[in-house]
Amino acid sequence: MALLETHDLSKAFGALTAVNAVSLRVEAGTLHSIIGPNGAGKTTLFNLLTGTFPPSAGRIVFDGSDITGTPAHRIAHLGLARSFQRTNVFPAFSLLDNVWLAAFACSKSWRGLLWRRADRYPEATAQARAALADVGLGEKADQPAREISHGEQRQLELAIALAAAPRVLLLDEPAAGLSPEETRRMVALVRALKGRYTIVLIEHKMDIIMNVSDRISVMHFGSLIAEGTPEEIQRNAEVRRAYLGGVAA
């Protein structure tokens, strides 16, 4: 069963159609990757899925209900959590507070919002600690986010998304700017999350994609040009053409 679907989803910025009639089906429990050259419209597609801006046309269906046009702050409550391509954390906060904020947002009740001490929410705190431990940052919970390395910030980025206990994880280039060693750790991490969550992954690094994906969709100039298993995609002539540039391969 498809957990997340788009139907002819489009987004135009003036004359530029960044996303053009994309129809995508993400099956529950799978890791579905979206690849494509720079500027193919992958991040714009994520922004549409998470309500950063509404689509120009088309529909988004999550778990059988139409969520097209749902604003960003509601999306997390529905069970869709994203990580960002460029690290987007709360720099002055400790790692725990970074993650806690996401865990609290999606907790069942906001009782005591104005008067109970923030550290008296054992459930949210436990969830936040678990998310930090999941990405291997449990030891650094009390450090400020601005003091950890870039690689660790990418892990934190992921932990913030996990803390909301989402049903679908949207990961936008989790390995962006990482060293080979850090990349290997991130791949192991994503692989460990596979199966526990339905994951939609945007990535540039082919070796990662081919390694972890169940299905791959290829975007080029805003449109989907191919979809299939990693093996199918590797054999696909059109995909090679898109990646090698206009030359007929």
Partner: peptide
């Protein structure tokens, strides 16, 4: 309270505060 933390979160990073809900 949580409100205090949320407000500081907004100060630190409005986009992320919106994205986490």
């Amino acid at each position: 309270s949580p409100l205090g933390k949320i407000l500081q979160g907004i100060r630190e990073n409005e986009v992320r505060a919106e994205a986490v809900g």
